[in-house]
Computed example of a mutant assay.
Amino acid sequence: MADDKRGRDKQAQDADRRQRERALQAELERYDEAEPPIEDAELDELEAELETVSFPATGAEIVDAVGERRVTAGQKTYAVEELLPEAEVETFEAPEVVRSRIQRPTVASAMKRIVEASETIPNVEFSSGQRDAYEKTIRALQAVDTLDEDEGVRAITDWIIEQIEEKGKLPESRDVRRQGAKITRNTGYEVRSDEWLGI
């Protein structure tokens, strides 16, 4: 490349492009790290305690067995009963499922509230696909830097519970994503079309 103005401009543009690509990659890698997870050693101990439970087991059965057990994420400590729904509508197939559910406490406590609220719906079926979509929306809101103190997580959780109370049914996953996008945009954060909330 010639050492003239055009060559230097091209080098500067290439350097700028590479820097933006690195920043984007770093942001994508941090997407699921909105809060410190519970340490593996603690989760291993909890999983060992769950050997006394006969699986598949309801959330209520698990809370009855290990609900007072405490786990730590970052600077906060939680009782398992704060993270799992004391409900009959959700069944856990194995200890590994319990482990993955409580690994991110903010998401787990939001889903606990939603699952417990859904028990008021007659013959409710909370499918794993619907649950996964709710969780993904909550994680996306938790990852938005402009939302303080998990404001977005509380807002979407409250909205879902209001929908359950008003309509007597679980809101569709797509509606939850739309509401999550609305909450995010109201904070001034742009939601791209290639993101989970970009529908």
Rank of each mutant, 00 (worst) to 15 (best):
A26K: 15
A65G: 07
D148A: 10
A94S: 15
G129K: 07
Q13I: 10
E93L: 02
E116S: 05
Q179C: 03
V97N: 01
G168H: 13
G152W: 02
E21R: 15
P36F: 04
E135K: 12
E149H: 13
A73F: 06
Q13L: 13
G7P: 08
D4E: 09
S100Y: 12
Q103Y: 11
W196L: 02
L24D: 14
R185F: 08
P122E: 06
V98I: 10
L46P: 05
K167A: 04
S127K: 06
E162Y: 11
E33G: 01
E49A: 10
I164E: 01
T52R: 11
L83I: 14
R185N: 05
E125C: 00
E42L: 03
T58I: 03
T157M: 00
I164Y: 05
V144T: 09
P56W: 07
T187V: 04
I121D: 01
D32H: 10
T187R: 06
Q163G: 04
A26L: 12
E135G: 05
E116W: 08
P171E: 01
Y78E: 00
G74V: 07
L147P: 03
I138M: 06
R178S: 03
L24G: 03
M1C: 05
E47L: 06
I114A: 03
M1V: 12
E49L: 12
A57M: 07
R6C: 00
V63A: 00
S100R: 15
A143R: 15
L84T: 06
I160T: 11
D194M: 03
E88G: 03
R18W: 13
G198M: 02
D150H: 14
K10S: 09
E51W: 10
E162M: 06
I161K: 09
P171D: 00
S173M: 00
V53W: 03
L46M: 09
R177G: 03
A140C: 03
E42V: 04
V124H: 01
S54F: 09
E21M: 09
L28T: 12
I183P: 02
Q25F: 11
E47V: 11
V124F: 07
R178G: 02
D158Q: 11
E172S: 04
V66F: 07
G74R: 10
D40E: 06
G59D: 02
Y78P: 01
A12H: 14
A133L: 08
Q163R: 15
E116H: 13
A73C: 08
E119M: 02
K167T: 13
A140K: 05
A155V: 08
